[in-house]
């Protein structure tokens, strides 16, 4: 859908609403005051569904923190070790899935050794499997399991896991996710602890996740470099760690879309696979829904102040 069309529709809807509001003030006030919340649910559904069906997208302009994440990965040399801490689940896949895909794609293009693990949820291994199946096996079939990437799977214990692997990974990770001894995995042979990693990339949806990686890995071991992608709910609380404890941060789907653009601009083909554009795709409904929220707050305040005036009168 054309951007100009989207704005025209928006302006018409807002304009029509204002006309109704001005000409039928009393009726509008009463209707809005007792508005059934199911109408709001319906509006939200339409605000997200229509842009998805219309495949509405907008241009992206990467900001500093996304560039910082991109640059940290760019600095690495082929063969460098990257810990891919995939701490999310299906409940946050809408926001974090595109980041995880873009991180994997970027690391594959750079020829980095990827060590996947998860401490957030027992469902984490499925998220790792998604990255391996949809990116590595689909588009980088020459990469070999155990040589170029490994799936260490899930361990219970939250920050207790980080506490152990910063000094000794072998005692806890005796096998990979598939039950193979780490001693038989070539890329694990010389890894004693995660201090040997050249970068930690964390995709985090909550506890245990980015905060724990900051507090128990990046803070006590300042040589460890950490970048992350997090959910919108978490993002604002991570800013105090930047840049000393956390070098770069992707916040919510916008962060994903920005990073996707940076990666595709440098490494993408002429016509990139649509799975690498998920962030950009979801920014369409995002814009319309944000507008809806703003309109809802403004309308609610109109009702509130109109009510106040009536009380005084």
């Amino acid at each position: 859908m054309n951007v100009a069309w989207a704005w025209t529709i928006l302006v018409v809807v807002v304009g029509a609403s204002l006309v109704v509001l001005v000409t039928r003030r009393e009726q509008t006030y009463r209707a809005l005051k007792d508005l059934d919340r199911r109408w709001i649910f319906l509006l939200m559904l339409l605000a997200v569904a229509i842009p998805i069906l219309g495949e509405l997208t907008f241009p992206e302009k990467p900001t500093g923190l996304a560039k910082a994440v991109f640059d940290e990965i760019e600095k690495l040399e082929p063969g460098d070790k990257v810990l891919m801490a995939w701490d999310y689940d299906p409940a946050s896949e809408g926001e974090l899935g595109p980041m995880a895909t873009a991180f994997t794609y970027h690391c594959c293009k750079k020829g980095l050794k990827m060590y996947y693990m998860t401490i957030f949820s027992p469902v984490g291994p499925q998220m790792i499997e998604d990255a391996i199946e949809h990116v590595i096996k689909a588009d980088f079939p020459h990469l070999e399991y155990g040589v170029d990437y490994v799936n260490l799977g899930y361990k219970s214990g939250y920050e207790g896991v980080i506490k152990v692997i910063v000094s000794n990974i072998r005692e806890l990770y005796t096998t990979d996710h598939y039950g193979k001894s780490v001693q038989d995995i070539p890329m694990m042979r010389d890894v004693r602890n995660i201090q040997q990693m050249d970068l930690i990339i964390n995709v985090s949806a909550g506890y245990a996740g980015l905060k724990e990686w900051v507090l128990f890995a990046a803070t006590p071991y300042p040589d460890l470099t950490l970048v992350a992608g997090v959910t919108g709910v978490m993002a604002p609380q991570q800013y105090p760690y930047i840049p000393e404890q956390l070098r770069g941060l992707l916040g919510a789907i916008k962060g994903a879309a920005e990073y996707e653009k940076l990666v595709l601009d440098k490494y993408g083909d002429e016509d990139p696979d649509p799975k690498y554009l998920k962030g950009k795709q979801r920014m369409g409904p995002q814009l319309i829904a944000h507008m809806l929220i703003i309109v809802l707050i403004i309308v609610a305040n109109f009702v509130y102040f109109a009510g106040k005036r009536r009380e005084r009168a």
């Binding site: 508005l35 919340r37 709001i40 649910f41 509006l43 939200m44 559904l45 997200v48 829904a289 809806l292 929220i293 809802l296 707050i297 309308v299 609610a300 305040n301 509130y304």
Partner: peptide, 13 residues
């Protein structure tokens, strides 16, 4: 997503 829309309408004054 639905509840945050509803909350935006009801709570923010």
């Amino acid at each position: 997503a639905f509840y945050i829309a509803s909350a935006s309408f009801r709570a923010f004054r």
